[in-house]
Computed example of a mutant assay.
Amino acid sequence: MNEMFLEKFRALVPKYLEDPWKPEDGISEKELEEALEEHAFTVPQVLREFYLALGNSELMEAYHYFWDPEELEIDDEGFLMFLEDEDEQFTWGFRAGDLRVPDPIVYRKNNARGEWVSEDGTFSEFTFDMFEWVFSEDDEEDEEG
């Protein structure tokens, strides 16, 4: 499988954590396969490469919490959930029917209402935008403090 996103995800470590990317920041291919083998679904290429690049990094818990590969699950509405906010008000996922798409559209669920709505962007777009927002917010707080 050709890597489409791996290097872009690895580049997030020096950009936001100010350290060079190291193999320990990611999950090895073997570890990832073992973590995913019990699931009855496939994981999109972009999410696989995200875990390979960042699965053990601090970015997994930078404001929002990415689920570990073994924690992934499909809910009753048919969405593979992979991320939630720190207050557990929102969950993000993909439509189960889109799991073979290399970089599927992300949906957000309001946990109180149980409604899924499109984020109008793919996982890669959503993730890069989210980290930009999270870390620019941190920079603004540092400047104010």
Rank of each mutant, 00 (worst) to 15 (best):
L32D: 02
K109M: 12
A11S: 15
F94E: 00
G114A: 03
F123H: 05
E84M: 14
I74S: 01
E137S: 15
D98Q: 04
I74D: 05
L17N: 01
M1L: 11
E70M: 07
E7C: 10
E132Q: 12
Y65M: 12
I74F: 04
E61H: 14
E125N: 06
D25S: 11
R108Q: 13
E115A: 08
E77R: 11
E140L: 14
N111H: 08
E38A: 15
T42I: 15
M130R: 10
M1C: 12
M4Y: 13
G97W: 07
E3S: 10
F135E: 04
R10E: 05
A96R: 14
A96G: 11
G145D: 13
A62V: 00
P102D: 10
N110A: 08
R113P: 04
E3K: 13
L59R: 00
G97L: 08
S28P: 02
V43T: 13
F94P: 05
F126H: 07
V43I: 08
I105Y: 05
K22Y: 12
M1T: 09
E31F: 03
V117C: 11
G97P: 07
W21L: 02
R108D: 07
K109Y: 05
A53L: 00
E31Q: 11
F128D: 02
E144A: 15
E31K: 07
E115K: 09
R95M: 01
L80W: 00
G26N: 04
I27R: 13
T127Q: 00
T127R: 01
A11M: 04
E143Y: 15
F50E: 02
D142W: 06
L72Y: 03
L83Q: 01
F66E: 07
F126G: 03
S57G: 04
E86F: 13
L12I: 05
R100G: 09
H39Y: 06
H39T: 07
L59K: 03
P104F: 00
P69N: 00
F79Y: 14
D142G: 11
V117H: 10
S118N: 02
V46A: 13
T127P: 03
L72R: 04
D142A: 14
G114P: 02
R10V: 06
F9P: 03
L36R: 02
R108S: 15
E144I: 09
D103F: 06
N110W: 11
E140T: 11
I105M: 14
P23W: 00
A40D: 11
P20R: 07
E18Y: 12
F50P: 02
S124A: 08
E3Q: 10
P20E: 09
F126P: 01
D138P: 09
R100W: 14
E119S: 09
V43G: 06
E125P: 05
I105G: 14
T42R: 13
D19R: 12
W92C: 07
D68A: 12
G55R: 06
M4A: 09
S136K: 12
D19Y: 08
L6C: 06
E71Y: 14
I105E: 15
D75K: 01
T42M: 10
S118A: 10
N56C: 07
F66T: 08
W116N: 05
T42D: 14
L12M: 04
E3C: 09
D75F: 01
V43S: 03
A11D: 11
K22F: 12
L36Q: 03
V117P: 10
